[in-house]
Design a protein around this nucleic acid. Structure first.
Lengths: 211, 211
DNA sequence: ACCGAACACTAAACGGGAATCACTTGAGCG
DNA sequence: CGCTCAAGTGATTCCCGTTTAGTGTTCGGT
Protein backbone atom coordinates (compact mmCIF):
# COMPACT_ATOMS: atom_id res chain seq x y z
CA UNK A 1 0.00 0.00 0.00
CA UNK A 2 3.04 2.21 0.08
CA UNK A 3 2.94 2.14 -3.70
CA UNK A 4 0.84 5.19 -4.04
CA UNK A 5 0.26 4.39 -7.68
CA UNK A 6 0.67 7.90 -8.87
CA UNK A 7 -0.75 8.36 -12.27
CA UNK A 8 1.97 8.49 -14.92
CA UNK A 9 1.42 12.22 -15.05
CA UNK A 10 0.03 11.80 -18.55
CA UNK A 11 1.79 14.43 -20.60
CA UNK A 12 3.52 17.09 -18.60
CA UNK A 13 1.38 19.96 -17.50
CA UNK A 14 1.49 23.07 -19.57
CA UNK A 15 4.18 25.33 -18.16
CA UNK A 16 3.24 28.54 -16.46
CA UNK A 17 2.44 31.39 -18.73
CA UNK A 18 4.40 34.14 -17.10
CA UNK A 19 2.61 37.31 -16.22
CA UNK A 20 -0.51 38.06 -18.17
CA UNK A 21 0.45 35.86 -21.06
CA UNK A 22 -1.94 33.06 -20.16
CA UNK A 23 -4.80 35.51 -19.72
CA UNK A 24 -4.24 36.81 -23.22
CA UNK A 25 -4.09 33.31 -24.64
CA UNK A 26 -7.44 32.52 -23.06
CA UNK A 27 -9.06 35.66 -24.39
CA UNK A 28 -7.73 34.93 -27.85
CA UNK A 29 -9.00 31.36 -27.89
CA UNK A 30 -12.32 32.39 -26.41
CA UNK A 31 -12.72 35.05 -29.06
CA UNK A 32 -12.08 32.59 -31.87
CA UNK A 33 -14.70 30.18 -30.54
CA UNK A 34 -17.17 32.86 -29.51
CA UNK A 35 -17.07 34.55 -32.91
CA UNK A 36 -17.48 31.22 -34.66
CA UNK A 37 -20.06 29.57 -32.42
CA UNK A 38 -21.73 32.22 -30.29
CA UNK A 39 -22.47 32.26 -26.60
CA UNK A 40 -23.71 28.70 -26.26
CA UNK A 41 -20.89 27.30 -28.34
CA UNK A 42 -18.16 28.96 -26.35
CA UNK A 43 -17.99 26.56 -23.41
CA UNK A 44 -15.38 26.69 -20.69
CA UNK A 45 -14.11 23.26 -21.68
CA UNK A 46 -13.72 24.11 -25.34
CA UNK A 47 -11.85 27.28 -24.56
CA UNK A 48 -9.60 25.47 -22.10
CA UNK A 49 -8.90 22.70 -24.60
CA UNK A 50 -8.01 25.25 -27.25
CA UNK A 51 -5.51 26.88 -24.90
CA UNK A 52 -4.21 23.44 -23.87
CA UNK A 53 -5.02 23.83 -20.21
CA UNK A 54 -7.55 22.41 -17.76
CA UNK A 55 -10.93 24.06 -17.50
CA UNK A 56 -10.17 25.00 -13.93
CA UNK A 57 -7.26 27.14 -15.03
CA UNK A 58 -9.62 29.66 -16.58
CA UNK A 59 -10.90 30.53 -13.14
CA UNK A 60 -7.44 31.68 -12.18
CA UNK A 61 -7.81 34.56 -14.56
CA UNK A 62 -11.55 35.18 -14.78
CA UNK A 63 -14.37 35.13 -12.27
CA UNK A 64 -16.63 33.16 -14.56
CA UNK A 65 -17.49 32.44 -18.16
CA UNK A 66 -19.45 35.63 -18.66
CA UNK A 67 -16.51 37.75 -17.57
CA UNK A 68 -14.50 36.30 -20.43
CA UNK A 69 -17.11 36.93 -23.08
CA UNK A 70 -17.94 40.37 -21.77
CA UNK A 71 -14.28 41.35 -21.91
CA UNK A 72 -14.24 40.31 -25.55
CA UNK A 73 -17.38 42.30 -26.22
CA UNK A 74 -15.86 45.27 -24.43
CA UNK A 75 -13.15 45.29 -27.03
CA UNK A 76 -15.71 45.37 -29.79
CA UNK A 77 -17.81 48.09 -28.20
CA UNK A 78 -14.71 50.15 -27.59
CA UNK A 79 -14.04 50.13 -31.30
CA UNK A 80 -17.58 51.36 -31.86
CA UNK A 81 -17.03 54.13 -29.34
CA UNK A 82 -13.91 55.18 -31.21
CA UNK A 83 -15.85 55.39 -34.45
CA UNK A 84 -18.52 57.50 -32.79
CA UNK A 85 -15.95 59.74 -31.15
CA UNK A 86 -14.24 60.29 -34.44
CA UNK A 87 -17.51 61.19 -36.16
CA UNK A 88 -18.43 63.33 -33.20
CA UNK A 89 -15.49 65.59 -33.90
CA UNK A 90 -16.12 66.24 -37.57
CA UNK A 91 -17.38 69.72 -38.36
CA UNK A 92 -20.30 68.74 -40.55
CA UNK A 93 -24.04 69.14 -40.56
CA UNK A 94 -25.43 67.33 -37.50
CA UNK A 95 -28.06 65.53 -39.57
CA UNK A 96 -25.35 64.09 -41.76
CA UNK A 97 -23.40 63.19 -38.66
CA UNK A 98 -26.38 61.39 -37.16
CA UNK A 99 -26.78 59.46 -40.35
CA UNK A 100 -23.14 58.47 -40.43
CA UNK A 101 -23.22 57.37 -36.81
CA UNK A 102 -26.28 55.22 -37.31
CA UNK A 103 -24.91 53.69 -40.47
CA UNK A 104 -21.61 52.97 -38.76
CA UNK A 105 -23.58 51.43 -35.91
CA UNK A 106 -25.38 49.07 -38.25
CA UNK A 107 -22.21 48.21 -40.09
CA UNK A 108 -20.53 47.45 -36.83
CA UNK A 109 -23.35 45.21 -35.67
CA UNK A 110 -23.38 43.21 -38.87
CA UNK A 111 -19.62 42.77 -38.72
CA UNK A 112 -19.61 41.71 -35.06
CA UNK A 113 -22.87 39.81 -34.74
CA UNK A 114 -21.96 37.74 -31.71
CA UNK A 115 -20.56 40.56 -29.64
CA UNK A 116 -23.49 42.68 -30.71
CA UNK A 117 -26.02 40.08 -29.65
CA UNK A 118 -24.33 39.54 -26.32
CA UNK A 119 -24.50 43.22 -25.44
CA UNK A 120 -27.75 44.30 -27.07
CA UNK A 121 -29.95 41.22 -27.32
CA UNK A 122 -29.05 38.86 -24.51
CA UNK A 123 -29.64 40.79 -21.29
CA UNK A 124 -32.66 38.75 -20.35
CA UNK A 125 -32.11 35.27 -19.02
CA UNK A 126 -28.55 34.81 -20.17
CA UNK A 127 -26.87 37.18 -17.79
CA UNK A 128 -27.83 39.00 -14.64
CA UNK A 129 -28.16 42.74 -14.83
CA UNK A 130 -25.07 43.53 -12.78
CA UNK A 131 -22.66 41.55 -14.88
CA UNK A 132 -23.29 43.47 -18.03
CA UNK A 133 -23.13 46.76 -16.20
CA UNK A 134 -19.54 47.56 -17.15
CA UNK A 135 -20.07 46.75 -20.79
CA UNK A 136 -23.45 48.44 -20.84
CA UNK A 137 -21.81 51.56 -19.55
CA UNK A 138 -19.55 51.52 -22.59
CA UNK A 139 -22.62 51.19 -24.77
CA UNK A 140 -24.21 54.10 -22.94
CA UNK A 141 -21.19 56.26 -23.70
CA UNK A 142 -21.63 55.42 -27.38
CA UNK A 143 -25.27 56.38 -27.12
CA UNK A 144 -24.34 59.61 -25.35
CA UNK A 145 -22.18 60.66 -28.29
CA UNK A 146 -25.22 60.09 -30.40
CA UNK A 147 -27.60 61.99 -28.11
CA UNK A 148 -25.27 64.97 -28.24
CA UNK A 149 -25.70 65.25 -31.97
CA UNK A 150 -29.47 64.78 -31.78
CA UNK A 151 -29.54 67.55 -29.20
CA UNK A 152 -27.70 69.78 -31.66
CA UNK A 153 -30.46 69.15 -34.16
CA UNK A 154 -33.17 69.74 -31.60
CA UNK A 155 -31.50 72.97 -30.49
CA UNK A 156 -31.66 74.32 -34.01
CA UNK A 157 -35.39 73.62 -33.98
CA UNK A 158 -35.26 71.09 -36.78
CA UNK A 159 -36.92 68.25 -34.89
CA UNK A 160 -40.31 67.59 -36.37
CA UNK A 161 -41.81 65.31 -33.71
CA UNK A 162 -41.20 64.43 -30.11
CA UNK A 163 -38.46 65.41 -27.71
CA UNK A 164 -34.77 65.06 -28.44
CA UNK A 165 -34.75 62.16 -26.00
CA UNK A 166 -37.48 60.16 -27.65
CA UNK A 167 -36.19 60.96 -31.13
CA UNK A 168 -32.74 59.67 -30.20
CA UNK A 169 -34.14 56.53 -28.64
CA UNK A 170 -36.37 55.83 -31.62
CA UNK A 171 -33.57 56.34 -34.11
CA UNK A 172 -31.33 54.02 -32.21
CA UNK A 173 -34.06 51.43 -31.69
CA UNK A 174 -35.03 51.28 -35.33
CA UNK A 175 -31.44 50.69 -36.41
CA UNK A 176 -31.10 48.06 -33.74
CA UNK A 177 -34.25 46.41 -35.02
CA UNK A 178 -32.96 46.07 -38.52
CA UNK A 179 -29.57 44.63 -37.67
CA UNK A 180 -30.79 42.38 -34.89
CA UNK A 181 -33.43 40.87 -37.14
CA UNK A 182 -30.95 40.34 -39.94
CA UNK A 183 -28.60 38.66 -37.48
CA UNK A 184 -31.13 36.45 -35.76
CA UNK A 185 -33.22 35.50 -38.79
CA UNK A 186 -30.72 34.79 -41.54
CA UNK A 187 -33.15 32.44 -43.28
CA UNK A 188 -35.64 35.19 -43.94
CA UNK A 189 -35.53 36.51 -47.49
CA UNK A 190 -34.22 39.98 -46.83
CA UNK A 191 -33.96 42.70 -49.40
CA UNK A 192 -30.42 43.86 -50.07
CA UNK A 193 -29.04 44.96 -46.73
CA UNK A 194 -27.45 48.13 -48.10
CA UNK A 195 -30.78 49.18 -49.51
CA UNK A 196 -32.54 48.37 -46.26
CA UNK A 197 -30.11 50.50 -44.29
CA UNK A 198 -30.58 53.34 -46.71
CA UNK A 199 -34.37 53.15 -46.74
CA UNK A 200 -34.40 53.04 -42.96
CA UNK A 201 -32.16 56.08 -42.59
CA UNK A 202 -33.88 58.05 -45.35
CA UNK A 203 -37.28 57.31 -43.88
CA UNK A 204 -36.39 58.00 -40.30
CA UNK A 205 -34.44 61.17 -40.87
CA UNK A 206 -36.91 62.54 -43.35
CA UNK A 207 -39.71 61.72 -40.96
CA UNK A 208 -38.18 63.13 -37.82
CA UNK A 209 -36.09 66.03 -39.06
CA UNK A 210 -37.46 69.04 -40.91
CA UNK A 211 -35.52 70.29 -43.88
CA UNK B 1 -41.13 -13.09 4.27
CA UNK B 2 -44.45 -13.04 2.63
CA UNK B 3 -44.54 -9.43 3.63
CA UNK B 4 -43.04 -8.17 0.48
CA UNK B 5 -42.32 -4.88 2.14
CA UNK B 6 -43.62 -2.85 -0.67
CA UNK B 7 -42.33 0.62 -0.49
CA UNK B 8 -44.99 2.80 1.05
CA UNK B 9 -45.50 3.98 -2.50
CA UNK B 10 -44.12 7.26 -1.34
CA UNK B 11 -46.97 9.49 -2.18
CA UNK B 12 -49.15 7.63 -4.60
CA UNK B 13 -48.29 8.24 -8.17
CA UNK B 14 -50.37 10.82 -9.83
CA UNK B 15 -53.33 9.07 -11.46
CA UNK B 16 -53.61 9.00 -15.19
CA UNK B 17 -54.85 12.12 -16.78
CA UNK B 18 -57.34 10.64 -19.12
CA UNK B 19 -57.08 11.51 -22.74
CA UNK B 20 -55.32 14.73 -23.52
CA UNK B 21 -55.92 16.22 -20.15
CA UNK B 22 -52.37 15.77 -18.95
CA UNK B 23 -51.03 17.45 -22.06
CA UNK B 24 -53.09 20.52 -21.32
CA UNK B 25 -51.95 20.58 -17.71
CA UNK B 26 -48.34 20.52 -18.85
CA UNK B 27 -48.85 23.36 -21.29
CA UNK B 28 -50.58 25.40 -18.65
CA UNK B 29 -47.85 24.91 -16.07
CA UNK B 30 -45.15 25.51 -18.65
CA UNK B 31 -46.82 28.72 -19.70
CA UNK B 32 -46.98 30.01 -16.14
CA UNK B 33 -43.30 29.35 -15.58
CA UNK B 34 -42.22 30.46 -19.04
CA UNK B 35 -44.05 33.77 -18.75
CA UNK B 36 -42.62 34.36 -15.32
CA UNK B 37 -39.05 33.18 -15.82
CA UNK B 38 -38.35 32.98 -19.53
CA UNK B 39 -36.68 30.29 -21.57
CA UNK B 40 -33.85 29.47 -19.19
CA UNK B 41 -36.10 29.47 -16.15
CA UNK B 42 -38.62 27.08 -17.63
CA UNK B 43 -36.78 23.81 -17.03
CA UNK B 44 -38.27 20.40 -17.65
CA UNK B 45 -37.98 19.52 -13.99
CA UNK B 46 -39.69 22.67 -12.78
CA UNK B 47 -42.58 22.19 -15.18
CA UNK B 48 -42.92 18.56 -14.15
CA UNK B 49 -42.89 19.49 -10.46
CA UNK B 50 -45.58 22.08 -11.04
CA UNK B 51 -47.77 19.49 -12.72
CA UNK B 52 -46.92 17.00 -9.97
CA UNK B 53 -45.41 14.47 -12.29
CA UNK B 54 -41.94 13.13 -13.05
CA UNK B 55 -39.81 14.95 -15.59
CA UNK B 56 -39.89 11.90 -17.84
CA UNK B 57 -43.65 12.14 -18.14
CA UNK B 58 -43.31 15.26 -20.24
CA UNK B 59 -41.73 13.19 -22.98
CA UNK B 60 -44.93 11.18 -23.31
CA UNK B 61 -46.63 14.24 -24.68
CA UNK B 62 -43.87 16.31 -26.24
CA UNK B 63 -40.78 15.49 -28.26
CA UNK B 64 -38.59 17.83 -26.27
CA UNK B 65 -38.55 21.01 -24.25
CA UNK B 66 -38.57 23.30 -27.23
CA UNK B 67 -41.72 21.72 -28.57
CA UNK B 68 -43.51 22.73 -25.39
CA UNK B 69 -42.38 26.32 -25.45
CA UNK B 70 -42.96 26.68 -29.17
CA UNK B 71 -46.52 25.43 -28.77
CA UNK B 72 -47.08 28.11 -26.17
CA UNK B 73 -45.60 30.72 -28.47
CA UNK B 74 -47.77 29.46 -31.29
CA UNK B 75 -50.79 30.34 -29.23
CA UNK B 76 -49.49 33.85 -28.74
CA UNK B 77 -48.60 34.38 -32.37
CA UNK B 78 -51.97 33.06 -33.43
CA UNK B 79 -53.60 35.80 -31.41
CA UNK B 80 -51.40 38.31 -33.23
CA UNK B 81 -52.45 36.84 -36.55
CA UNK B 82 -56.08 37.24 -35.58
CA UNK B 83 -55.53 40.89 -34.77
CA UNK B 84 -53.83 41.43 -38.11
CA UNK B 85 -56.55 39.58 -39.98
CA UNK B 86 -59.20 41.66 -38.31
CA UNK B 87 -57.42 44.89 -39.21
CA UNK B 88 -56.81 43.56 -42.68
CA UNK B 89 -60.52 43.45 -43.31
CA UNK B 90 -61.38 46.97 -42.26
CA UNK B 91 -62.24 49.30 -45.11
CA UNK B 92 -59.99 52.19 -44.10
CA UNK B 93 -57.08 54.09 -45.54
CA UNK B 94 -54.17 51.67 -45.95
CA UNK B 95 -51.75 54.05 -44.26
CA UNK B 96 -53.96 54.11 -41.20
CA UNK B 97 -54.22 50.36 -41.38
CA UNK B 98 -50.46 49.97 -41.52
CA UNK B 99 -50.15 52.19 -38.51
CA UNK B 100 -52.73 50.21 -36.58
CA UNK B 101 -51.07 46.93 -37.46
CA UNK B 102 -47.67 48.12 -36.35
CA UNK B 103 -49.01 49.60 -33.15
CA UNK B 104 -50.88 46.40 -32.41
CA UNK B 105 -47.68 44.50 -33.10
CA UNK B 106 -45.76 46.54 -30.58
CA UNK B 107 -48.53 46.28 -28.03
CA UNK B 108 -48.59 42.55 -28.49
CA UNK B 109 -44.84 42.24 -28.05
CA UNK B 110 -44.82 44.27 -24.86
CA UNK B 111 -47.66 42.21 -23.43
CA UNK B 112 -46.08 38.86 -24.35
CA UNK B 113 -42.39 39.56 -23.92
CA UNK B 114 -41.25 35.99 -23.41
CA UNK B 115 -43.15 34.49 -26.31
CA UNK B 116 -42.05 37.43 -28.42
CA UNK B 117 -38.42 36.94 -27.55
CA UNK B 118 -38.57 33.22 -28.21
CA UNK B 119 -39.91 33.74 -31.71
CA UNK B 120 -38.20 36.95 -32.78
CA UNK B 121 -35.00 37.23 -30.79
CA UNK B 122 -33.75 33.76 -29.98
CA UNK B 123 -33.29 31.97 -33.28
CA UNK B 124 -29.53 31.95 -33.01
CA UNK B 125 -27.96 29.46 -30.66
CA UNK B 126 -31.03 28.57 -28.64
CA UNK B 127 -32.87 26.54 -31.22
CA UNK B 128 -32.05 24.93 -34.50
CA UNK B 129 -33.61 26.40 -37.60
CA UNK B 130 -35.99 23.51 -38.28
CA UNK B 131 -37.66 23.52 -34.90
CA UNK B 132 -38.90 27.04 -35.16
CA UNK B 133 -40.08 26.49 -38.70
CA UNK B 134 -43.73 25.87 -37.80
CA UNK B 135 -43.91 28.88 -35.53
CA UNK B 136 -41.91 31.02 -37.93
CA UNK B 137 -44.38 30.19 -40.62
CA UNK B 138 -47.12 31.63 -38.43
CA UNK B 139 -45.05 34.77 -38.02
CA UNK B 140 -44.58 34.92 -41.77
CA UNK B 141 -48.32 34.81 -42.28
CA UNK B 142 -48.65 37.79 -39.95
CA UNK B 143 -46.01 39.59 -41.94
CA UNK B 144 -47.78 38.70 -45.17
CA UNK B 145 -50.95 40.44 -43.97
CA UNK B 146 -48.78 43.45 -43.38
CA UNK B 147 -47.04 43.28 -46.75
CA UNK B 148 -50.41 43.21 -48.45
CA UNK B 149 -51.30 46.57 -46.99
CA UNK B 150 -47.91 48.06 -47.83
CA UNK B 151 -48.39 46.85 -51.37
CA UNK B 152 -51.69 48.69 -51.48
CA UNK B 153 -49.86 51.86 -50.55
CA UNK B 154 -47.14 51.22 -53.08
CA UNK B 155 -49.73 50.51 -55.78
CA UNK B 156 -51.29 53.91 -55.22
CA UNK B 157 -47.86 55.46 -55.76
CA UNK B 158 -47.60 56.90 -52.29
CA UNK B 159 -44.33 55.24 -51.37
CA UNK B 160 -41.62 57.85 -51.13
CA UNK B 161 -38.51 55.67 -50.99
CA UNK B 162 -37.52 52.14 -51.82
CA UNK B 163 -39.53 49.18 -53.00
CA UNK B 164 -42.64 47.91 -51.24
CA UNK B 165 -40.57 44.99 -50.05
CA UNK B 166 -37.83 47.01 -48.43
CA UNK B 167 -40.32 49.51 -47.00
CA UNK B 168 -42.29 46.72 -45.36
CA UNK B 169 -39.17 45.11 -43.96
CA UNK B 170 -37.88 48.40 -42.61
CA UNK B 171 -41.19 49.29 -40.99
CA UNK B 172 -41.38 45.92 -39.34
CA UNK B 173 -37.74 45.99 -38.28
CA UNK B 174 -37.94 49.41 -36.68
CA UNK B 175 -40.95 48.39 -34.60
CA UNK B 176 -39.20 45.22 -33.64
CA UNK B 177 -36.18 47.25 -32.58
CA UNK B 178 -38.14 49.41 -30.22
CA UNK B 179 -40.01 46.65 -28.45
CA UNK B 180 -37.10 44.23 -28.32
CA UNK B 181 -34.86 46.86 -26.78
CA UNK B 182 -37.49 47.83 -24.22
CA UNK B 183 -37.92 44.17 -23.34
CA UNK B 184 -34.26 43.26 -23.12
CA UNK B 185 -33.02 46.46 -21.49
CA UNK B 186 -35.57 47.30 -18.83
CA UNK B 187 -32.96 49.14 -16.77
CA UNK B 188 -32.40 51.73 -19.46
CA UNK B 189 -34.14 55.02 -18.78
CA UNK B 190 -36.68 54.95 -21.57
CA UNK B 191 -38.95 57.79 -22.49
CA UNK B 192 -42.63 57.03 -22.06
CA UNK B 193 -43.32 53.97 -24.18
CA UNK B 194 -46.53 55.33 -25.65
CA UNK B 195 -44.68 58.42 -26.83
CA UNK B 196 -41.87 56.30 -28.25
CA UNK B 197 -44.31 54.21 -30.23
CA UNK B 198 -45.99 57.31 -31.53
CA UNK B 199 -42.76 59.06 -32.48
CA UNK B 200 -41.56 55.93 -34.23
CA UNK B 201 -44.75 55.53 -36.25
CA UNK B 202 -45.07 59.23 -37.03
CA UNK B 203 -41.48 59.40 -38.14
CA UNK B 204 -41.47 56.23 -40.17
CA UNK B 205 -44.76 56.78 -41.92
CA UNK B 206 -44.10 60.43 -42.60
CA UNK B 207 -40.68 59.51 -43.90
CA UNK B 208 -41.71 56.66 -46.14
CA UNK B 209 -45.18 57.61 -47.29
CA UNK B 210 -46.02 60.72 -49.27
CA UNK B 211 -49.15 62.61 -48.25
C1' DA C 1 -62.25 -15.15 -15.39
C1' DC C 2 -57.98 -14.73 -17.24
C1' DC C 3 -54.08 -13.38 -20.28
C1' DG C 4 -51.32 -10.06 -22.48
C1' DA C 5 -50.77 -5.93 -24.86
C1' DA C 6 -51.06 -1.00 -24.57
C1' DC C 7 -50.74 2.79 -21.79
C1' DA C 8 -49.24 6.39 -18.39
C1' DC C 9 -46.12 6.86 -15.52
C1' DT C 10 -41.55 6.35 -12.74
C1' DA C 11 -36.53 6.01 -10.86
C1' DA C 12 -32.13 5.89 -12.24
C1' DA C 13 -28.72 7.01 -15.16
C1' DC C 14 -26.00 9.43 -18.94
C1' DG C 15 -23.46 13.05 -20.90
C1' DG C 16 -22.40 17.63 -20.78
C1' DG C 17 -22.59 22.19 -18.96
C1' DA C 18 -20.52 25.82 -14.96
C1' DA C 19 -18.24 26.23 -10.88
C1' DT C 20 -15.62 24.71 -6.57
C1' DC C 21 -12.49 21.91 -3.78
C1' DA C 22 -8.37 19.97 -2.03
C1' DC C 23 -4.33 19.11 -3.62
C1' DT C 24 0.35 19.34 -6.35
C1' DT C 25 3.92 21.45 -8.92
C1' DG C 26 7.64 24.31 -9.64
C1' DA C 27 10.04 28.89 -9.85
C1' DG C 28 12.23 32.33 -7.01
C1' DC C 29 14.49 33.44 -2.91
C1' DG C 30 16.54 33.63 1.95
C1' DC D 1 18.34 23.36 1.22
C1' DG D 2 13.82 24.49 2.58
C1' DC D 3 10.24 28.00 2.28
C1' DT D 4 6.42 30.48 0.16
C1' DC D 5 3.08 31.15 -3.16
C1' DA D 6 1.06 31.68 -7.67
C1' DA D 7 -0.44 28.63 -11.28
C1' DG D 8 -2.10 24.43 -12.39
C1' DT D 9 -4.64 19.94 -11.75
C1' DG D 10 -8.33 15.85 -11.18
C1' DA D 11 -12.24 14.86 -8.75
C1' DT D 12 -16.51 16.47 -7.35
C1' DT D 13 -20.91 19.05 -6.99
C1' DC D 14 -24.96 20.61 -8.85
C1' DC D 15 -28.14 21.39 -12.52
C1' DC D 16 -29.58 20.73 -17.15
C1' DG D 17 -32.11 17.88 -21.14
C1' DT D 18 -32.79 13.45 -22.47
C1' DT D 19 -32.76 8.12 -22.49
C1' DT D 20 -33.32 3.57 -20.67
C1' DA D 21 -35.42 0.05 -18.44
C1' DG D 22 -38.63 -0.81 -16.02
C1' DT D 23 -43.70 -0.74 -12.86
C1' DG D 24 -48.44 -0.63 -12.08
C1' DT D 25 -53.11 -0.10 -14.27
C1' DT D 26 -56.59 -0.83 -17.65
C1' DC D 27 -58.99 -3.09 -21.06
C1' DG D 28 -60.22 -5.95 -25.20
C1' DG D 29 -60.15 -10.77 -26.73
C1' DT D 30 -61.04 -15.45 -25.74
Amino acid sequence: MTTVLKKPQRSARKPKGDGHMRRGEILEAAQRIFLAEGYQGATIRKIADEVGVSSTALYMHFKDKDEILLEISDGAITRLLEINSELSGRPIDPVVRVRMMLDAYMGFALENPNAYQLVFCAHTGLMTEEKTEATSELGDRCFQKFIDVVNEIAASGRLRTGSAESAAQVLWASCHGLVSLIITKPKFTWADSTELRQVLLDGMLHGLVAD
